[in-house]
Simulated scan of single mutants.
Amino acid sequence: MVNDTRELPATSRDGMHRFLGGSPITVAFRLILLSILVGVVLAAIGFDPWNIVYSIRLLFQRIWNLGFDAINGLWRYFLLGAVIVVPVWLLSRLFGAPRGR
């Protein structure tokens, strides 16, 4: 038998297929598409591929600030609602019918 040097032996080809999870072309195509998708998402949240450390620090700083902005917003909603709810509750307790025990 003459061994053809252009093709890999079947066991080597099966091992590579199993390691990659598919044919090399298909895996490369999937990785390219996934990289583009992840790149779009990372760009949307402000990552810069040329300065990744600064981008990560900036992301955490924005998340930190967003958290405190959310607390500030909740506090303002609480105060706005309390202006109505607390007096109505107090009036209902003062002028409500007495309840027997």
Rank of each mutant, 00 (worst) to 15 (best):
N3I: 15
N3P: 00
R6P: 00
R6T: 11
E7Q: 14
L8M: 15
L8N: 06
L8H: 07
T11M: 13
S12N: 10
R13I: 14
G15A: 12
H17D: 04
H17Q: 12
F19W: 09
F19M: 14
F19Y: 14
G22Y: 03
G22I: 10
S23Q: 13
P24V: 02
V27G: 02
F29K: 11
R30G: 04
R30D: 07
R30N: 09
L31C: 14
L31Q: 14
L33I: 06
L33P: 00
S35A: 15
I36T: 11
L37F: 10
L37E: 04
V38M: 04
V40W: 03
V41R: 01
L42N: 03
A43G: 02
I45F: 01
G46S: 12
D48L: 09
D48A: 12
D48R: 11
P49E: 03
W50G: 15
W50L: 15
N51D: 15
N51I: 11
I52T: 10
Y54E: 15
Y54V: 15
S55G: 08
S55Q: 00
S55F: 06
I56R: 01
I56M: 10
R57Y: 13
L58D: 04
L58Q: 06
L58P: 01
L59I: 03
R62S: 11
R62T: 02
R62H: 08
R62C: 02
I63K: 01
I63T: 08
W64C: 04
W64G: 00
W64M: 08
N65P: 00
L66C: 07
G67A: 10
F68D: 02
F68T: 11
D69N: 07
D69L: 11
D69K: 02
A70K: 02
I71A: 13
N72E: 13
N72T: 14
G73D: 09
L74M: 13
L74N: 13
W75Y: 10
R76T: 03
R76I: 05
R76H: 01
Y77I: 14
F78N: 03
L79T: 12
L79N: 13
L79S: 09
G81L: 05
G81F: 10
A82I: 04
V83Y: 03
V86I: 15
W89N: 03
L90S: 06
L90Q: 01
L90T: 11
L90I: 14
S92I: 05
R93P: 01
A97T: 09
A97L: 15
P98M: 11
R99N: 11
R101D: 13
R101M: 07
